[in-house]
Design a protein around this nucleic acid. Structure first.
Lengths: 228, 228
DNA sequence: CGACAGACTAAACAAATGTTTAGTCCGAGC
DNA sequence: GCTCGGACTAAACATTTGTTTAGTCTGTCG
């Protein structure tokens, strides 16, 4: 199964190696994947891998670039259709390439710059959606728009990152269900319910308490330690 | 900085090793962490590590057990206070132990059973909150309650998993801001806005489209391929 | 005291890892 | 035809890996 566009083994060896590396990195992590494993998966010799990419880290960087580029195109495509915040569409975006997603998740944990870049792209697209949909609530360029988009991106990415857990609890096979209707329905149900919650008296209390603690500039543990 | 309860180096060597391993696994991944690195971090010899835990995988299993136990206690504690779905409280739960969180994130990607167990605990607690708050919307034991709790757990975990990205975009230092008021405020703003969205005509359209595709039993790609 | 068990260390080991080196093959350009 | 460069392989290399082995130290129990 090809990772993204091009069909199959009619790729030149360099691209085949890079795709195999992407898969191995995604599956086993940066240090878990081995040069020999990658070479074997690409049906080439270990030497050829180094010939094309120099070192293992060079190979990883090449994968980073690829992932960033693929996501750049996809986010652009979704943004043009105004569907970036459509939970279903976002699900399908990830759905097409669970491997890219695993790669990104690991990259995020490893602190790779590629993960930062993709996250920023998603967040900016999300911010555009928020501003377009609620120009008064999330004015263009406002802190609220930016903060909320950031949080929303993280939360929706959580679905993608933990799709394995969701699939397990849904009784699906792994990598089967991110675009599933049940997931989209769950998101909608959640938003409908928590939307009320956020505007109920309890929710207002929470907001007040949060604001009281000084939204925007507080530092962790700066507030006076509350006696348990 | 101690990973959880006990104070510091007055731990016996076994616990010190286990804590050091937890940190190394969290920081560098299961295969990235080395026995020598763990032994050095615990200020013991490599042999002692094996003396206490046998093999590297045995050590990992011990860490799994510890994480599961710590989260079991914490979730129980939060559930008793009816604060499990309070975004702020959930944030603080993770906030206390970014290392445990990183460990869990990696465990989840590696398919460890411990990650499954913790996710289930969180999801069950969340489901309890949903059922208590909206007994009609999410009847006890219903599929809606279970599905929505699963999705909500994944989304809130996304905040925790991607706290590094959030902190970066907030201009905070890493591991600083998960309990931050800005995060909690972002969640509230998001729920308030998307709550409307989910009940707007557009949102109802989405729900209808989703239901149309056969919520609950659909398999991926089963629907007739829509001509792009 | 003497023996024994468990905590603990140091050195040795075999396997696996990333990288280097030397060399083959083959098509393009003069 | 010859050569030159890039794709490509195979073997050797040094290092690091997890694990094993042998041994020391220390407190405890009979």
């Amino acid at each position: 199964m090809p990772t993204h566009q091009h069909s199959e083994s009619d790729l030149n060896a360099r691209a085949r190696i890079r795709d195999a590396a992407l898969e191995q990195f995604a599956l086993h992590g940066t240090s878990g994947a081995t040069m020999r494993g990658i070479a074997h998966a690409a049906s080439v010799s270990v030497g050829l891998v180094q010939h094309h990419f120099g070192t293992k880290d060079g190979l990883r960087l090449a994968c980073d670039e690829l992932v960033v580029e693929v996501f750049r195109r996809r986010v652009l495509h979704l943004a043009k259709k105004d569907q970036l915040a459509n939970a279903d569409a976002l699900g399908e975006l990830f759905d097409e390439s669970p491997l890219l997603l695993r790669y990104l998740a690991r990259a995020s944990l490893d602190g790779s710059a590629a993960a930062d870049e993709v996250f920023d792209q998603l967040a900016e697209g999300t911010q555009g959606f928020l501003t377009e949909t609620w120009p008064d609530r999330f004015p263009e360029g406002s802190d609220d728009a930016r903060d909320t988009a950031t949080v929303m991106t993280a939360m929706h990415s959580g679905i993608a990152l933990l799709i394995g857990q969701i699939a397990r609890r849904f009784g699906h096979e792994p990598d089967e269900a991110i675009g599933s209707a049940r997931v989209a329905m769950g998101i909608m149900n959640l938003y409908a319910a928590m939307g009320e919650f956020a505007q109920s008296s309890t929710g207002k209390d929470v907001r007040a308490a949060v604001e009281d603690r000084g939204a925007g500039t507080d530092r962790r543990r700066t507030r006076p330690e509350e006696p348990r």
